[in-house]
Amino acid sequence: MPEPLTTHTGVAAPLLRDNIDTDAIIPSREMKTTGKTGLAEGLFAGWRYLAPGTRDPDPSFVLNQPAYAGATILLGGSNFGCGSSREHAVWALAEFGIRAVIATSFAPIFFGNCVRNGICPAVLPPEAVAEIAAAAEAGSQVSLDVEAGTVSLADGRTWSFSLEAEARAMLTEGLDAIDLTLKLRDRIAAFHARDRAERPWIYLEEQA
């Protein structure tokens, strides 16, 4: 179960490209185990290291720059997290220590994966992300209030982002979606009783 995330302040690393895909976030070759851990080292491997398979940091990549050491927030462009549905991208970000991604838009599967793994995905307009990036480059930390749905800078500039109530609750309370759903067990059973009569061909055990 993810750690609850209510407020957070940290270093934000600007990676202002559009369409940053999950292959870039965690290349397939870096998904070496069948589990959910051991992925942080492979995060952005294609950009972070000089040659594929090596671990020599590419000094030009933002997360390798001293100013962004210990970054816990990523700033991105549009359609962040597009591509493969691999949740490993989010597991790698979480293990690396990222608690929020602020971008102009997200790929839907990636967005949901963030929420389920304790990373806050915040959508802000391009001008806002650019301003935050400029501030981050000038050394300002970035703060996030998940409950209030705001991103702010030390100088007081604040932007609001929207998050559906359930996503917010899952982040702030560290709720597990399965437990939430299992509270609706009776509704699910009632649905199946009705549906089984209406669409028996869906229920394969009865056809066996």
């Binding site: 949901g112 359930e166 939430l180």
Partner: peptide, 22 residues
Amino acid sequence: WGIGSSEAEHAMATGTLRVATP
């Protein structure tokens, strides 16, 4: 539609998914 691994766990455990209306 494609989902993440946690959602796959959710779908297998409950036979349902929580989905925002697209």
